[in-house]
């Protein structure tokens, strides 16, 4: 099984700040990848590169084993890679149907008139498919709860036939019940074969929903864990770069690859071990 999306050796600088150093990332269909790291670790920069908001200084962007050029957001969406930013990009004054179809409304055979019945039908279909519950598809999204709004933002990507969905802190502003709702939605999409990348500062959420965790620190990918054989302490240690940590970069704790939670910030161009993905991970069929 090949990853849908692969990044190799991504570098990105903002002036003197090197936000990403030689970062690799791979996302398979049917798995949820957690992207964790302290503030300023480079998570947002990395997903903006995936989304085509920033172009990397160097590195490869590979989709379905083919090198592609992604320099604009449209490039990413054409490849089926959709990003839900923290602000959700919803129009609060518009109803659910209008938000789902914003910018790509169904029209009546070539005329500039909207085909609202068709849009409504498809909205109901997709919400049912994702098991999102709302009172009516005609309420303005401002009247929805935070969890419902997040769900609507995700449903938008599904309507566009996303294969990879990237979520930036999807549960940051949510209460317990709503967080549960969104995590359920993420699992459901994973079960439907989508690849998901979830940025989160909440390790409880990470353990709840993620199959694999990638830890970033100071612009590097410093560790990668299979969630089933990992403890919170290991992840925290990798995030903070604690001396005593024994996080394993590579294939989760079971694989005895070289430990590479590098404490030496001096070695800027230190090579990471290759992240060859092995088959047989529980989450990947």
């Amino acid at each position: 099984m090949e990853p849908i999306l692969q990044l190799r050796g991504i570098n990105k600088s903002f002036g003197a700040v090197q936000a990403l150093r030689n970062v690799d990332l791979e996302v398979y269909g049917g798995e949820v990848v957690g992207l964790v790291g302290d503030n300023g670790a480079g998570k947002s920069t990395l997903i903006k590169i995936i989304a085509g908001v920033y172009a990397p200084d160097s590195g490869e962007y590979i989709v379905d084993n083919r090198r592609v050029n992604v320099t604009r957001p449209q490039d990413a969406t054409h490849l089926g890679i959709e990003t839900v930013y923290q602000d959700l990009a919803l129009c609060d004054n518009l109803d659910v149907v209008s938000n789902l179809f914003l910018g790509r409304e169904d029209t009546i055979s070539g005329l500039p008139f909207m085909n609202s019945t068709e849009m409504e039908r498809r909205t109901i279909d997709v919400l049912r498919q994702l098991d999102v519950k709302i009172r009516s598809v005609h309420v303005p999204v401002s009247a929805l709860s935070g969890g419902q709004r997040q769900s609507i933002a995700v449903a938008k990507t599904i309507l566009r036939n996303a294969r990879i969905v990237i979520l930036d802190e999807p549960t940051a502003a949510l209460g317990v019940a709503q967080t549960r709702q969104v995590l359920q939605l993420i699992k459901r999409l994973r079960d439907q074969g989508l690849g998901m990348v979830v940025i989160s500062h909440n390790l409880a959420d990470v353990f709840e929903v993620v199959d694999r965790v990638i830890v970033m620190r100071l612009g590097r990918r410093v560790a990668s864990f299979d969630i089933k054989s990992t403890t919170t302490e290991q992840i925290v240690a990798a995030i903070t770069g604690a001396e005593f940590s024994n996080g394993i970069d590579g294939q989760g704790a079971s694989v005895g690859s070289t430990a590479s939670v590098n404490g030496d910030e001096g070695a800027d161009d230190g090579n990471h071990p290759a992240y060859q993905h092995e088959s047989g991970k529980g989450s990947i069929q």
């Binding site: 109901i124 919400l127 049912r128 098991d131 999102v132 598809v137 459901r188 079960d191």
Partner: peptide, 12 residues
């Protein structure tokens, strides 16, 4: 996936 009271998805 099952959620307790599955009131039929979105009303219209």
């Amino acid at each position: 996936v099952a959620t307790p009271q599955a009131d039929q998805a979105p009303s219209t």
